[in-house]
Amino acid sequence: MVTEAMTVKETTIEIKAPKKPIWQQMKKMKLLYVMLLLPAVMLFIFNYLPMYGVLIAFKNFSPGLGIWGSPWNNFEHFTRLFEDFMFIRALKNTLIISLLKIVIAFPAPIIFALLLNEIRNQKFLKVTQSISYLPHFMSWIILSAMIIEVFSPQRGIVNFIITAFHGNPINFLSSKVFFIPVLIITDIWKEIGYGAIIYLASIASVDPSQYEAAEMDGAGRFKKMIHITLPSIMPMVIILFILRLGGVLNAGFDQILNLYNPLVYEVADIIDTYVYRSGLEQFQFDYATAVGLFKNIIGIIFILGANAIIRRKSEHGIW
């Protein structure tokens, strides 16, 4: 925290200091621009050059005519989106699932990292970490079969417990009430360990003398966690949070596709699954591109908004 404060002070001083002409500053930092050159050129070649491809979203694309040659279509793909009430429903579901995931599943790895940090037994710590990261590598095709088993009303362990307590078995994956909780829990279960890595890395860079000083002041375990560890990873939390908001219209395609069924379409059908099911992805590049563009624009709006709000309160925006 001490270092943090110092940095902040320095920058404010710099801003207040009489401004050197920009070119002079640029000259001083020219080596930094040289460093930037290579990544920037690569980015330009591999990301900016092909960007004309977004034009497909505004055209009736025909592979034979190419992207430039295909005829314009008057935003037809976009009007089509909003005339389709199924799409509107999918948009709503996407937002609900995604926001719930952001609120519940996003903090999970943070808490996980903080708690793991409290374990002193190095061996135990290492083994737990290594295990927690395993499910990230299992694909949803494989996991879904297991999840369906675990929640099966006839054979599943969950319902076995429910019936043992004289409850009625619940068909979780066909229930409009329980489907989304299952989505969120399984999402946490799969990604918590992998997601915690970046936070563990941030915690590793905390200066241990801070803990020692706090201990001297008589701070307990919990106090140290709240007042030292948590603030030290806060910049990382904020940046990841903003970037996560950029993907607000990605609610977990693979997961839902492998778990849902028509009985829960009403709550679980998201944009990606709907577009996929429509066979549109298969055949209609132009429409799929339009949907992708729409998703990204919404994502950018979320990022801009979050960044603006966070900038007002703290130093840690993206720019």
């Binding site: 028509p262 009985l263 099911r277 429509s278």
Partner: peptide, 23 residues
Amino acid sequence: SKRYSGQLNTIVDEFRMKAIVGE
């Protein structure tokens, strides 16, 4: 059918499942 099959299939599948299970 390219344009509407997504919507129509969703309506049909949903109705069929809900009808069968008595929802």
